[in-house]
């Protein structure tokens, strides 16, 4: 099933589109994935996938194990360079950015933040420090790239106070304020997951990408997570998440993209996806093909 509302326009250049005044596409789309293909040697992990994530929405990417979700994610967040296709970020009132052409560290600066399937915090640094590292780019500019700060110029202390304030906000939003001075590595698992989200949010992204945020959480923690994600959406950040916990996906997603064997097989509202025979077939396995392949 192809997207019902707005098929992404692959051929058109974002710039010309803006010049011609097609503003509607810009307002609605935050991320545009066009014909994305990723091959590792002979293996095609993602094959000509196209979809669009809308601004201010939660888009979930689901699919059976090995469907290419994490590969897709790694392409979007700059950890892999795609073999073909394009990924564009459309921020409000800004020119679109070709994410697939940016070096890894520029992706976050362009406004895409991510979390990791296996949590990647800075375990020996405190929760607060983790959140300040996330504001590195902003703070670094305020220090005059290190030189001014050593000399004690006055602009930095103010920037740092603001950064700490932002960190405090996210710590309290993730219910971690009382653990601010504890090393991240010593936090319980659920708290680490929340801290990673808080850290990603401290980069002040336009799009937050979450790789299985509910993995390993108990039902109560999953509920809290769902609430947190809705809150983040409420503040105007768009979300893209990979998730296996269908309870969470169906409850909070505005849109669900389904991948199977590297191909897009569905892109629709949660309810529609649930009833899609292709999706059901992908999850239950068409014949014995999957089992054979995995065995």
């Amino acid at each position: 099933m192809m997207p019902a509302d707005e098929p992404p326009r692959v051929e058109e250049d974002g710039l010309t589109r803006k010049m011609t005044g097609d503003r509607r596409v810009h307002r609605e789309m935050i991320l545009e994935v066009a014909n994305l293909t990723m091959r590792f040697g002979g293996l095609t992990a993602v094959s000509a996938v196209s979809f669009a994530a809308s601004r201010g929405e939660i888009t979930a990417v689901i699919g059976p194990n090995g469907a290419g979700k994490t590969t897709l994610f790694n392409c979007i967040t700059g950890f892999y360079r795609p073999t073909g296709g394009a990924i564009r970020l459309h921020r409000a009132n800004e020119l679109p950015v070709d994410l697939h052409l940016l070096p890894g560290h520029r992706i976050a600066r362009a406004g895409v933040a991510r979390t990791f399937q296996n949590i990647r915090l800075f375990p020996g640094m405190t929760a607060l420090e983790n959140l300040l590292v996330a504001q590195h780019v902003k703070l670094m500019a305020a220090t005059g790239f290190g030189i001014g700060a050593v000399l004690g110029l006055s602009r930095y202390p103010k920037a740092e106070r603001q950064a700490v304030e932002l960190a405090r906000q996210w710590l309290s939003a993730t219910n971690l304020l009382d653990r601010a001075d504890d090393p991240a590595g010593a936090l319980p698992y659920g708290a680490q997951r929340r801290l990673e989200i808080a850290r990603a949010m401290c980069t002040e992204p336009a799009l937050l990408c979450l790789d299985e945020p509910a993995a390993g959480l108990n039902p109560r923690e999953s509920d809290e997570l769902a609430r947190l994600l809705l809150e983040i959406r409420g503040q105007g950040t768009s979300l893209l998440l990979i998730e296996h916990d269908m309870g969470v996906v169906m409850r909070i997603s505005d849109r669900v993209v389904v991948l199977d064997h590297g191909k897009l097989i569905a892109d629709a509202a949660p309810a529609a996806v649930q009833g899609d025979p292709k999706v059901i077939a992908a999850y239950l396995g068409e014949g014995d093909e999957d089992e054979e392949a995995e065995a």
Partner: peptide, 21 residues
Amino acid sequence: QPLGRAWEALREDEIACRALG
């Protein structure tokens, strides 16, 4: 300062650093 914290963060996890810009 941010620079020193970035050094320590790099020591802790390079990939996470990249994801933070």
